[in-house]
Design a binder for these strands. Structure first.
Lengths: 154, 154
DNA sequence: CTAAATTAGTAACATATGTAACAGTCTGGT
DNA sequence: ACCAGACTGTTACATATGTTACTAATTTAG
């Protein structure tokens, strides 16, 4: 009849998500003064090239106002530029500037190293189990299109 | 050289944590108007009996001001009472009222059913992998004392 | 025994996020 | 061609959260 909070999945996920994010954010926050929403939008732009705000919102699963603020901040840093789409003037094609791409080139290996070290410390057995479990959860819960990459890769 | 956001662990955890929490919150939010911080404090009090605010903060990994607000809200609902500790008058011993315990008895089975259904849908193989991976991560990252229950249980 | 440092909990302030309303643009049916 | 409805992105407002400062109580060092 008792629920043990420490065993409750949503709680465990929230706690780990916070820990992992805080740990990862140290790098992009201290080196570039980036917030988490900024990092996400930035990482997507580096990964996919030109995107619209709505696309960023979709792939980052961030609310559109959050995206709006994030790209505004990145624009202030001169890391991205917007260009109104001539075929549909509601759309803004957003892409990283050369400066932004340089920051991306600098930052990404550091972020990957953090993740690789974590996986190494987990060990092959545990990390494989983790990826399997995460992929299964994503398969169950997340929008097929968004989750597909993780599934294939997990 | 490219980082794929959908494969990045902190992002995957955040996304899943949000999804799981939103899913779980439907029940305690719609039936009892509880917020997530309230639910956490409430679940701990039901689980452990009398606690201080600091203890709740520790076991829930919530900031003490968040806890302060959560227990205030639960107090307004008449679900908990505080009693100043006579040996150390800085402390407040917090415990659920009879009303609070009834709500707990009503709510916990529903929350457990949600989790059990999730695990069933994952299947034995996947959920075992998930628990193994989560336990390993908690072992690595979280305060030993806090994580110990999850470890043993996972 | 007393003063400084520590602790529990709250309150005031600043920041971050979500919700709702908005302006501008496009589309489809008539 | 036109208008109702839908879409993109921003702004204004409300709410939630974190940071800092505070009061009251206790503990510790000297």
């Amino acid at each position: 009849m008792n629920l043990v909070l420490e065993e409750f999945l949503p709680y465990r996920f929230n706690r780990l998500a916070e820990t992992l994010s805080r740990n990862a954010s140290i790098t992009y926050k201290s080196e570039y003064g980036m917030s988490r929403p900024e990092w996400r939008a930035f990482a997507l732009l580096g990964q996919k090239g030109t995107m619209t705000a709505t696309e960023i919102s979709h792939y980052s699963t961030m609310h559109k106002t959050k995206v709006s603020r994030a790209i505004f901040a990145l624009e202030q840093k001169r890391w991205l530029v917007r260009e109104v789409d001539e075929n549909d003037r509601r759309l803004e094609r957003i892409s990283l500037t050369v400066q932004g791409q340089q920051a991306y080139k600098n930052l990404v290996p550091k972020m990957q190293r953090i993740e690789n070290e974590l996986i190494a410390r987990l060990g092959k057995d545990n990390s494989e189990a983790l990826f399997k479990g995460l992929a299964a959860l994503e398969e169950l819960y997340l929008d097929k299109e968004t989750a597909s990459r993780s599934r294939k890769a997990g």
